[in-house]
Design a binder for these strands. Structure first.
Lengths: 360, 360
DNA sequence: ACCAATCATGTTTGCGCAAACACTAACAAA
DNA sequence: TTTGTTAGTGTTTGCGCAAACATGATTGGT
């Protein structure tokens, strides 16, 4: 077996060139030509080695690699990108990263993309305004990304007259724009359904709901699923309380709910609001789960340390991220744009915040 | 005022070119030459307009911009980077993003960099191993970033034989490697000092400490400051309990602490562990702050909804991020590398989890 | 009217790389 | 032998842009 075909590209060269001297001005980069000269081959051969072409005889390859190491050669990705017309880069547009879910998703995206040798460029959007998004997409264009993953509410995306360079693929997270874009998201409806079903199965007459903000698709879909599950079970649908995802808003909702006589079961649209509810119930002298059962959504790491440990719907953010990358890469490879929705399943994690209602 | 000097670069061109047709293969990008032809000028003039050179007469500029818009021209950043030798990109290396602090810092970095027209490339490191870091830095080299911000424990950085291309600047967060690198970090010691001081001032005999993992510099510095504050006050120094930042580990520590007879005040190295402590104390029948006072660190958004609302040390992650970017940009501009430590102050947020000890 | 000093623009060049093609040597098939 | 055939390598070319320099068109000063 002389030189097996398709050797992996030679990356990861160590040993930077010497002392960089004065290091003012842009250091003359070591180019393929330099390596070629030292190795006594043509620069094209260096290119071939650098790209793992199988058509290089082993001895030559070794010489070239030796020369690369000696000079500390690093491929210049600008030139490479210029020539190839691709940076192997995916742009990720996000609003606030401060939501746990977004961050986890981003992390998974970055990891998964790296695995396939794609880099991630982060384009943060300051304000959820037309201008903000417009600017982000514009920057995208300049950055010559091969694809874009947008982690945001899609109605904002629509509002902006998106002017992506033609040929750039888009995947959207957290939206219902499956007809226009490729969408990947947690199966919100299924998760909410499981949560409500669980409470109903325990024997509760009905389930109250503390929803997230109206602008959030995730919130709206959880609410819709809550409602439809109740309706399907022939249970009354109590009025929706609305929070803003924060523990504080949950606390406020909890204060009201604690005074609601018939309320024995609550489904909070996320764990942080559930935390607020827990606090409110405690202050009002309602114990969980004896007086009121509570289910959250997200399964934040601390959920098991809430008092009591929270029954909640686990979201698999890593999977969402992976799916995004796979989807986008697929689009790049096949050069097609395929709208559609990919749903990532959830899992109900039952802990100590739910029980059968007292009377039963 | 005909044409004021130094007009801002023309970015943000709207109106993508028409229908992209079949859109297979790499779309022939609209180049400066195309714009030049349409505008009836040389491509150099287009370049000048694109870069906001003041040496272009207003009428010409308008023509060029019109042509740009008509064709949907977008500067090709690959070519630009090739020519200029800079991508205007900062690489950010992180381990897990799932820590609140890291993600907040990252967000601030992204926002602040964008403000100065720098892009962010995310380089995630899977495992805290030599190989992992090595790989990340290697990718950095290929990505031709102008600078690197490493959000990680620096001992890992040291362990890797870092081979960054010469001329790339580095800033490290969360480390004490101020002699080698430029370091930006929360003033951990001051924060911990404030926390302990607060408890002492309330009249507690001493303060117990639930530390983070030993590998963490943040954890170690908080612990050191806790110790020195006690010592300076002439108080006994109880043994350190050690957690791993998780609420669960805090819970376990809390179980032990609750049985400790003389323990009336605890300083937890982060809020999540404090949450676990709270739960343990509750289960053990110890009430906070009546029996035991507790201070956390981080000031996570939910801290105010803990039971009771947590007194904690607020970290200004946004500031850390901004400082990182400023620092790195400064290094790029002046082309110098200046080791040193920038400390971002903390703030003690007093809520309901601390009080004077019962006897007093 | 002359020259010089602007100013606005055009021309040439090459950044580093890899696609396309050209070439050579070695060997097999006819 | 001649003619492919292939494997390994070299040569040319141009990606899109902007620095450097060149040119032409205005000015203003004398």
């Amino acid at each position: 077996m002389e030189h097996e075909p398709g050797q992996p590209p030679v990356h990861n060269l160590s040993a930077a060139p010497g002392g960089a001297g004065d290091a003012l001005r842009r250091q003359p980069q070591v180019s393929m030509a330099d390596v070629a000269k030292l190795a006594g081959v043509s620069s094209q051969t260096v290119s071939r080695v650098s790209n793992g072409s199988p058509d290089v005889i082993e001895s030559t390859r070794r010489q070239v690699i030796a020369a690369m190491n000696e000079l500390g050669y690093r491929p210049n990705s600008a030139a490479r990108a210029l020539k190839r017309g691709s940076f192997r880069t995916i742009g990720v547009i996000t609003f606030s990263l401060s939501s746990l879910g977004n961050m986890r998703t981003l992390e998974a995206i970055a990891l998964h993309a790296a695995r396939q040798d794609f880099a991630i460029t982060l384009i943060p959007v300051t304000a959820p305004t037309q201008a903000g998004i417009q600017g982000a997409f514009s920057r995208m264009g300049e950055l010559a990304v091969d694809a874009v993953i947008a982690i945001m509410e899609v109605h904002l995306l629509d509002a902006a007259t998106v002017t992506l360079p033609p040929g750039v693929k888009v995947v959207v997270v957290d939206s219902d724009a499956g007809e226009q874009y490729s969408v990947v998201d947690t199966d919100q409806a299924d998760g909410a359904h499981k949560a409500v079903r669980h409470l109903l199965d325990l024997g509760h007459e009905t389930v109250w709901h503390v929803a997230g903000p109206e602008e959030s698709f995730a919130s709206e879909r959880r609410a819709a699923a809550w409602r439809s599950t109740l309706t399907a079970a022939g249970k009354p649908v109590p009025p929706v309380l609305r929070g803003d995802w924060s523990a504080d808003s949950g606390y406020k909702a909890g204060l009201r709910l604690a005074d609601e006589p018939g309320c024995t079961a609550v489904f909070a649209a996320n764990d942080h609001m559930a935390l607020g509810l827990l606090r409110a119930f405690r202050e009002k002298g309602k114990s969980v789960p004896e007086d009121i059962s509570l289910v959250g959504f997200d399964d934040v790491p601390e959920a098991s340390s809430y008092a009591p440990p929270l029954t909640t719907v686990h979201q698999n953010f890593a999977d969402v991220g992976n799916q995004c990358v796979d989807n986008v890469l697929q689009q790049i490879r096949t050069n097609t744009t395929e709208p559609g929705v990919t749903l990532v399943p959830t899992e109900l994690v039952i802990r100590a915040s739910t029980a059968a209602p007292k009377g039963k």
